[in-house]
């Protein structure tokens, strides 16, 4: 079993599906000979040819819209959007068509496509390269939105996304692309969709996070463990739909909940989690729910990006509020 980075795990998953399913094609800007600006498609065109791994003209709405057209005719396109801030031209296609086609044709047509995009900040990138926009896609009916938090999760979830007969937005935290390596067996085994993963069990407080923020969240959990505080850490993984069963079960056990995400707070995915926990488990709560999030401002340029993103200190501060209430 090889140790790989998250970006390598993503490449492995695409290669596996290209190898095993002739309907799978990879498309996007610079995904061909260049292997993608983050190298997620490195070597794929050389291995599978220009018809399976296609450089597209520079037009994101086209990438999404063509993927819908291809998918509805029996292909399984895996499309890459180059940077997170470039994803917005796809919104029309995703919300008006990808998410609607199955339901508006009563199942006659469906859209087995994956829209992959880098997500989040922390890598000193230029403007419009560091946004966290998962809430935007989570609000779109008919689309699944996933965010992996480790190489193994990226591999298994991307396989599941490609094989799923419906559209999936797959947001890859750039900060985790090369942060660390993990043993990932390239065995083609997908992870389940619509489910979250308990990364660490604990009795005192439930911490729900996803994507890159799990890096800080796990550090905090380890730190608090030294003080004798047991944190249950849940990797949301499926931003939409949310696996509330696992979250509610945990909150009923701990009675305390903190949600940590990098995206802005206002109408963020944390709000949905907090609201549902309030609806379904209010009487299990011993303290008000705390959200530790990015601010409701445009993602700052990189000199201030770390002041925008919730730090270990801010996360600890948030959890202490929950613990001490």
């Amino acid at each position: 079993m090889a140790k790989v980075t998250m970006v390598e795990a993503i490449t492995l998953a695409m290669a596996y599906e290209l190898e095993h399913d002739p309907a799978v094609v990879v498309l996007g800007e610079d995904v061909g000979v260049n292997g993608g600006v983050f190298r997620a498609t490195a070597g794929l065109q050389q291995r599978f040819g220009k018809e399976r791994v296609m450089d597209t003209p520079l037009a994101e709405a086209l990438i999404a819209g063509m993927s819908i057209g291809m998918a509805a005719q029996g292909m399984k396109p895996v499309a890459e959007i180059q940077f997170s801030g470039f994803i917005y031209p796809t919104v029309d296609q995703m919300i008006n068509h990808a998410g609607r086609l199955r339901t508006r044709t009563r199942g006659r047509l469906h859209v087995p496509m994956v829209l992959r995009a880098p997500s989040g900040g922390g890598i000193h990138a230029p403007e419009h390269h560091s946004e966290s926009n998962e809430a935007l896609f989570a609000h779109m009916p008919g689309i699944r939105t996933l965010m992996p938090s480790s190489p193994a999760r990226a591999y298994g979830l991307l396989l599941a996304a490609i094989r799923d007969p419906d559209p999936v937005v797959f947001l890859e935290p750039t900060r985790l692309y090369r942060l660390n390596k993990q043993e990932v067996e390239d065995n083609g085994e997908a992870l389940p969709l619509d489910t979250c993963f308990v990364l660490r069990e604990g009795e005192d407080v439930t911490l729900v996070s996803w994507g890159a923020m799990l890096h800080e969240t796990l550090q905090v959990a380890a730190k608090l463990a030294e003080e004798g505080v047991g944190c249950e850490v849940i990797d949301l993984a499926s931003v939409s739909p949310i696996d509330f069963e696992t979250i509610l079960e945990s909150v009923k056990k701990t009675g305390r909940l903190a949600i940590i995400h990098e995206a802005p707070k206002n109408c963020g995915v944390g709000a949905e989690i907090a609201a549902t926990v309030a609806e379904k488990a209010l009487y299990s709560l011993k303290a008000p729910i705390e959200r530790v999030t990015g601010y409701d401002i445009p993602m700052p340029l990189f000199k201030l990006e770390h002041d925008y993103m919730p730090s270990v200190e801010r996360v600890i501060q948030g959890i202490r509020k929950v613990l001490e209430a």
């Binding site: 819209g65 063509m66 057209g69 396109p77 029309d92 047509l109």
Partner: peptide, 23 residues
């Protein structure tokens, strides 16, 4: 069964036609 339904958002279906043609 492979024909698309009516496209109300203007010109969005041009991309779908291009995608189908690619397939």
């Amino acid at each position: 069964q492979h024909d698309f339904a009516w496209a109300v958002p203007i010109a969005t279906q041009c991309h779908h036609a291009a995608g189908a043609a690619m397939a």
